[in-house]
């Protein structure tokens, strides 16, 4: 299952990457692969912007604008319903 093309905000700074591979361990959608010494993005459109890679990259080589991929959450956010999350109003999260 793939979502919309070319929308993810994921960015990898190959210069900074030390090839530790932690992003491969935390990514839930196999977005990355490890070449000797460097990580590369092999499935950009599979990125769901959860931010696990950015949170765990030890050299800040990854950037992604994180957020919930959830329409109800985004609507709640716009309506001032306590941030962009589905969980707040008995939504689907819990």
């Amino acid at each position: 299952m793939k979502y919309l093309k070319n929308v993810a905000t994921l960015k990898l700074d190959t210069e900074k990457c030390i090839g530790c591979g932690i992003c491969l361990s935390v990514c839930p959608h196999k977005v990355f692969d490890l070449n000797p010494g460097k990580v590369e993005i092999i499935d950009f459109d599979a990125c769901m912007e959860c931010g696990a890679c950015m949170m765990n990259c030890p050299v800040e080589a990854l950037y992604v604008k994180t957020g919930v991929g959830c329409a109800s959450g985004i609507i709640n956010g716009i309506l001032g319903g306590g941030g962009e999350c589905c969980c707040d109003k008995g939504g689907i999260c819990a």
Partner: peptide, 9 residues
């Protein structure tokens, strides 16, 4: 769903 991004939504 388990695979949608905020930018996409």
């Amino acid at each position: 769903s388990t695979y949608t991004s905020m930018s996409g939504v």
